[in-house]
Amino acid sequence: MVDNKQQWKAWLYLSPAIILLLVFTVWPIINTLRMAFLEGYSAQAEVGGATFEFGIGNFLKVIEYKKFLQCMQNTILLCVLTVPISTLLALLIAVALNSIKGLQKILQTIFFLPYVTNSIAIGMVFAAMFNIVGSFHGTENEIIQTAGIINNVIEFFGGERVNWINAGSQYWANITVMVVYIVWNALPFKILVLLGGLQSINAQYYDAAKVDGTSRSRVFARITVPLLSPMLAYVIITGFIGGFKEYTSIVGIFGETMGPPDAPGRLNTMVGFVYEALENKHQGRASAAALILFVIILIVTRLNMRFGKKSVYY
């Protein structure tokens, strides 16, 4: 134990970190709580001398708000679709990468590239790929030709072109594009983690399995996946947390309208809602929405961990 007389020294040495934490983490959290529970709070009005009563009005407003429900639906839908798909794909790719010899290094780099690329830039490329026509803002008599590479491919195979993201597109088409984009964006990190996990599995387990005459599919299901379960749990939990904070990817594809030009805000997410409320100087409402988001993430993570405890083997 540290001598009592020495304790002030310990505090002194810790103080830079503590002060930074207090200013940039603890105070914002407290302030968020305060703003959320003051009726109709607005920082501008407060500076002007207004006072606010304590209450849960901000929360009620947020929940009643149709836009918020839409945001919540989008967020949850994207989470539920993208996390399993990306985890499964990442697992398969990682296993494949781990089993090939020659081009491993190059392929690893290729799969890792999206991770170091700006996601807005990736979004713009995706937007161009899924474009139905040559221009975002094309009018009826301006452009006729299909420009997006995806629609080119569809038409090449004799399919009907789909309006993915432009004016007049359907909700499910928008969501499909978002799922593809988010999954693609999430893959590198997951592959990296899972590949690391795979490479740390003792090769002798595989030798033992071979001696025991185990088929490939059984090796995968009974040995690889269980031994990888800590990494899988990690990837899934962080995937859900990231998914609930989805925002940039929507901006990447649809711009700040958060939806096709004729339906702005249709793909908005919970984080997007918070930003919007802040922009409109409704800090109270923004804080309340942020807290709701926080509670949802907390619950989902707890559920994940409880489920994980049962399936993570050691």
Binding site: Q204, Y205, D207, K210, V211, D212, S229, Y314
Partner: peptide, 30 residues
């Protein structure tokens, strides 16, 4: 797998996520 051998590794290589029973059953289930 076709040689019908039993091999005990230098550090045993027991499957850590399976119980003793599952470990012993594993070759039979294959």
């Amino acid at each position: 797998e076709k040689r019908g051998i039993g091999l005990v590794f230098q550090n045993y290589a027991l499957y850590p996520h399976m119980t003793v029973k599952q470990n012993i059953l594993f070759p039979l289930q294959n």
